[in-house]
Structure formats: structure tokens, C-alpha cells
Measured scan of single mutants.
Amino acid sequence: SLEEAIRRAEEALRKGQTFEYAGIRVTTQEALEKFRKWAEKQK
């Protein structure tokens, strides 16, 4: 689910890792916010 993907992205960010979902790379807090906004639109 998208909620699960967001949780995994947050977890990866805390560990300093890269999270990738549907071709979207989350490597920074800013990218995480963009990913969250994108995920909201997918619902």
C-alpha cells in the first residue's frame, strides 16, 4: 500500500538509505515530502 511505502521511505531516510518506489527515489526529507504529496494524489 502507499501508506506502507511512505513508512518504508521514512525508515530508509532515518537510516540514511535510499528508498525507491514506482521509479521515484527518496533520498532527502524534501524528496520524502514530494513523495507524500504524490502518494496523496494516487488515492
Rank of each mutant, 00 (worst) to 15 (best):
Leu2Gly: 01
Gly16Thr: 02
Tyr21Gln: 04
Arg25Val: 15
Gly16Glu: 04
Lys37Ala: 13
Thr27Asn: 14
Ala22Asp: 13
Lys43Met: 15
Arg8Ser: 10
Ser1Pro: 12
Thr28Leu: 05
Arg8Pro: 00
Thr27Leu: 06
Gln42Phe: 10
Glu11Pro: 00
Gly23Leu: 01
Gln17Lys: 11
Tyr21Ala: 02
Arg36Ala: 06
Glu33Leu: 06
Gln17Ala: 09
Ile6Lys: 01
Val26Pro: 00
Glu33Ile: 08
Lys43Ala: 13
Tyr21Gly: 03
Lys15Asp: 10
Lys37Cys: 09
Arg36Ser: 03
Glu10Leu: 05
Glu3Lys: 10
Val26Gly: 00
Lys43Phe: 15
Ala39Thr: 06
Leu13Arg: 02
Glu30Leu: 08
Lys15His: 11
Gln29Trp: 14
Lys41Met: 14
Glu30Thr: 07
Leu32Trp: 04
Val26Asn: 00
Gln17His: 11
Glu11Met: 04
Glu3Arg: 10
Arg25Glu: 13
Gln29Asn: 08
Arg14His: 09
Gln29Glu: 11
Ala9Glu: 00
Ala31Thr: 12
Arg36Met: 13
Ala12Lys: 05
Glu4Arg: 11
Leu2Tyr: 10
Glu33Arg: 06
Trp38Gly: 01
Gly23Met: 02
Ala12Thr: 06
Lys15Ala: 13
Arg8Leu: 13
Glu10Gly: 06
Gln42His: 13
Glu30Val: 08
Thr28Lys: 02
Ile6Thr: 04
Gln29Phe: 12
Gly23Phe: 03
Glu33Phe: 04
Leu13Gln: 02
Arg8Gly: 09
Lys41Gly: 14
Thr18Gly: 10
Leu32Pro: 00
Thr28Cys: 09
Trp38Glu: 03
Gln17Trp: 07
Glu10Ser: 06
Ala22Gln: 13
Glu30Ile: 07
Val26Glu: 01
Arg8Asp: 11
Ala12Glu: 03
Arg14Thr: 09
Glu20Asp: 07
Ser1Leu: 12
Phe35Trp: 05
Gln42Arg: 09
Trp38Tyr: 05
Lys15Trp: 08
Leu13Ile: 15
Leu13Phe: 09
Leu2Met: 08
Ala39Ser: 04
Tyr21Ser: 03
Glu30Gly: 07
Ile24Arg: 03
Gln17Ile: 13
Leu2Cys: 10
Gly16Asn: 08
Phe19Ser: 01
Ile6Gly: 01
Glu11His: 06
Ser1Gln: 12
Lys41Ile: 12
Glu3Tyr: 07
Lys37Gln: 14
Phe19Trp: 04
Ile6Asp: 01
Lys43Gln: 14
Glu4Cys: 15
Lys34Met: 14
Lys43Thr: 12
Lys41Glu: 15
Glu3Met: 12
Glu3Leu: 10
Glu20Arg: 02
Ala12Leu: 07
Gln42Cys: 14
Glu20Phe: 05
Ala9Trp: 04
Glu4Ser: 11
Thr28Tyr: 02
Gln17Met: 13
Phe35Glu: 00
Lys15Leu: 15
Ala5Asp: 03
Ala31Arg: 03
Glu10Val: 10
Ala39Met: 08
Lys37Trp: 09
Leu32Met: 07
Ser1Asp: 14
Lys41Pro: 03
Leu2Ala: 04
Lys37Met: 12
Phe19Pro: 02
Gln29Leu: 14
Glu4Thr: 10
Arg25Thr: 15
Phe19Lys: 01
Lys43Tyr: 12
Trp38Lys: 02
Glu4Leu: 10
Thr28Trp: 04
Ala5Met: 14
Leu2Gln: 02
Ala39Leu: 12
Leu32Asn: 00
Arg7His: 11
Ala5Ile: 15
Gly23Thr: 04
Lys43His: 12
Gln42Val: 14
Gln29Arg: 09
Glu40Lys: 07
Ala31Lys: 05
Lys15Arg: 13
Glu20Met: 05
Ala22His: 15
Gln42Asp: 06
Lys41Thr: 14
Arg7Asn: 08
Arg7Pro: 03
Glu3Asn: 10
Arg8Glu: 11
Ala22Thr: 03
Gln29His: 12
Glu3His: 10
Ala9Arg: 00
Leu2Lys: 02
Arg7Met: 12
Thr27Lys: 08
Gln42Gly: 06
Glu4Asn: 11
Lys15Val: 10
Gln17Ser: 10
Gln29Ala: 13
Ser1Phe: 13
Arg36Thr: 07
Arg14Asn: 10
Thr27Tyr: 06
Ala22Tyr: 08
Glu30Ser: 09
Ile6Met: 08
Leu32Lys: 01
Gly23Lys: 03
Lys34Asp: 14
Lys37Asn: 10
Thr28Gly: 06
Arg8Trp: 09
Lys34Gly: 09
Leu13Thr: 03
Phe19Met: 01
Ile6Glu: 02
Glu3Pro: 07
Ala5Arg: 04
Ala5Tyr: 09
Ala9Ile: 06
Glu30Tyr: 04
Ala9Met: 08
Arg8Ala: 13
Ile24Phe: 14
Lys15Glu: 11
Thr18Val: 15
Arg36His: 05
Tyr21Thr: 03
Leu13Gly: 01
Glu40Met: 07
Tyr21Trp: 12
Lys15Met: 14
Tyr21Arg: 02
Ala5Pro: 03
Gln17Asn: 11
Phe35His: 01
Ala31Phe: 05
Arg25Lys: 14
Ala9Asn: 01
Lys34Glu: 15
Lys41Gln: 15
Gln17Thr: 11
Trp38Asn: 02
Ser1Ile: 12
Gln29Gly: 07
Arg14Phe: 07
Val26Met: 08
Gly16Tyr: 03
Gly16Pro: 00
Glu3Cys: 11
Phe35Arg: 00
Ala22Ser: 08
Lys41His: 12
Thr27Glu: 15
Glu30Gln: 09
Phe35Pro: 00
Lys15Gly: 08
Glu20Ile: 10
Glu33Asp: 13
Gly23Asp: 08
Lys34His: 13
Arg7Leu: 12
Arg36Ile: 15
Phe35Leu: 11
Ala5Leu: 15
Leu2Ile: 12
Lys37Ile: 12
Ala39Pro: 00
Glu20Leu: 04
Glu20Thr: 06
Leu2Glu: 01
Lys43Pro: 09
Ile24Ser: 02
Gly23Val: 01
Thr28Ile: 03
Glu40Trp: 05
Ser1Met: 11
Ala5Asn: 04
Gln17Asp: 13
Tyr21Leu: 05
Ala12Gly: 03
Phe35Ala: 01
Leu2Asn: 02
Ile24Tyr: 08
Trp38Ser: 02
Gln42Ile: 14
Arg25Leu: 15
Gln42Ala: 10
Ser1Trp: 15
Lys15Gln: 13
Thr18Met: 12
Lys34Ser: 11
Ala22Leu: 13
Arg14Lys: 13
Glu4His: 10
Leu2Thr: 04
Ala39Val: 15
Ala12Ile: 05
Arg14Leu: 11
Lys34Tyr: 15
Ile24Asn: 04
Glu4Gly: 10
Lys43Ile: 15
Gln17Glu: 15
Gln42Lys: 10
Glu40Cys: 09
Leu13Ser: 01
Glu33Ser: 06
Glu40Leu: 06
Leu32Ser: 00
Glu20Lys: 03
Val26Ile: 15
Tyr21Val: 06
Lys41Asn: 13
Lys43Leu: 15
Glu3Thr: 11
Glu30Pro: 04
Glu40Asn: 08
Thr18Ile: 15
Lys37Thr: 08
Ala22Glu: 13
Glu3Gly: 09
Glu30Ala: 12
Arg25Met: 15
Glu33Gln: 08
Ile6Cys: 09
Ala39Cys: 14
Gln42Ser: 08
Ala22Pro: 03
Ile6Pro: 01
Gln29Pro: 12
Lys37Val: 10
Gly16Asp: 06
Ala12Val: 04
Phe35Asn: 00
Ala12His: 06
Arg25Gln: 14
Lys15Pro: 01
Arg14Gly: 10
Ala31Met: 12
Phe19Thr: 01
Phe19Glu: 02
Ala12Ser: 09
Arg25Asp: 07
Arg8Phe: 09
Val26Lys: 00
Thr27Gly: 12
Ile24Thr: 04
Lys43Glu: 11
Glu30Met: 07
Gly16Gln: 04
Lys34Arg: 14
Lys37His: 11
Ala22Met: 15
Gly23Tyr: 03
Lys43Gly: 11
Lys43Asn: 11
Arg8Asn: 12
Glu4Asp: 14
Thr27Ala: 14
Arg7Gly: 08
Gly16Lys: 05
Glu40Arg: 05
Ala39Trp: 08
Glu10Met: 08
Arg8Gln: 14
Gln29Tyr: 13
Thr27His: 10
Glu11Asn: 07
Ala12Tyr: 08
Ile24Val: 06
Arg14Ser: 14
Lys37Asp: 14
Ala12Asn: 05
Val26Thr: 01
Ser1Tyr: 14
Leu2Phe: 10
Ala9His: 01
Glu3Ser: 12
Ala31Gly: 14
Thr28Phe: 03
Lys34Thr: 10
Ile6Gln: 02
Ile24Met: 10
Arg25Ile: 15
Ala5Glu: 07
Thr18Glu: 15
Glu4Met: 10
Leu13Lys: 01
Glu3Trp: 08
Lys41Tyr: 11
Gln17Leu: 14
Leu32Val: 02
Phe19Ala: 01
Val26Asp: 00
Ala5Phe: 11
Ile6Arg: 01
Ala5Gly: 03
Gly23Arg: 02
Ile24Glu: 03
Trp38Ile: 04
Lys34Ile: 13
Gln42Thr: 09
Trp38Cys: 12
Ala12Pro: 00
Leu32Tyr: 05
Gln17Tyr: 10
Phe35Lys: 00
Arg8Val: 07
Phe19Gln: 00
Ile6His: 01
Phe19Val: 02
Lys37Glu: 15
Glu11Tyr: 01
Ala5Val: 14
Ala9Pro: 00
